[in-house]
């Protein structure tokens, strides 16, 4: 790229005042900051000796889980939105026709490579049926790479293990309706922003 490239946006450098040119005031400022921190209280948690405190497990981004619906089936509808949103490309889904009457599609396999995952929580945000959630389990360990690739059963078992402590974040999600009951209800009871799921 040449300096004359029109795509270059030149930014005017800030004009330095006398104080900045003398270096000393800013030097002292930096030194004051570091010195202050040198003696201030430390935030480190000595993990194995000391368990970290999770203030709000609902917003903590730990190991994933796949939620179950009321009938104990996997809640996921294999829409791939989590896989689409995932910036690390760690979610792999195989969607097939579901064997159930009330559901069109479900994941035949659902794997998350926890080693690739960056725990950004975007899958959780993308999920339209709140099937994938991040729990507050932080001590994720394994002895091999294979062990860290979580399949559907393992993700469901994470749900079984954590469901009592951490209720589903949207337990009040309206049940999925069938066409017969899906006619718009009479009143515009809900505000537009909270209509639907």
């Amino acid at each position: 790229m040449q300096a004359t490239d029109p795509d270059i946006q030149w930014v005017e450098p800030p004009k330095l005042g006398l104080g900045e040119r003398m270096y000393l005031p800013l030097f002292l400022q930096g030194l004051t900051t570091t010195t202050k921190h040198l003696v201030s209280a430390k935030v480190t948690v000595s993990y194995p000796d000391q368990e970290p405190e999770i203030d709000n497990p609902l917003i903590y981004r730990g190991v994933h889980r796949l939620n179950r619906d009321e009938q104990g089936r996997v809640k996921c509808v294999a829409c791939f939105l989590c896989a689409t949103a995932c910036p690390a490309h760690c979610i792999d889904i195989l969607g097939v026709e579901s064997p159930w009457e009330d559901r069109e599609k479900y994941p035949e396999s659902f794997t998350i490579d926890e080693l690739r995952c960056i725990f950004c929580g975007m899958c959780e945000q993308a999920c339209p049926v709140d099937a994938i959630e991040l729990t507050s389990l932080y001590n994720l360990t394994g002895r091999s790479r294979e062990e860290m690739i979580f399949d559907k059963e393992k993700l469901l078992s994470v749900y079984d293990a954590t469901k009592d402590k951490e209720p589903m974040k949207s337990a009040q999600l309206p049940p999925v309706t069938t066409p017969s009951t899906a006619t718009p209800s009479t009143a515009t009871s809900t505000s537009p922003t909270e209509g639907g799921a």
Partner: peptide, 10 residues
């Protein structure tokens, strides 16, 4: 140590 302390670590 100093690096850690300046960054509020142990």
């Amino acid at each position: 140590w100093i690096a850690a302390w300046v960054q509020d670590r142990l």
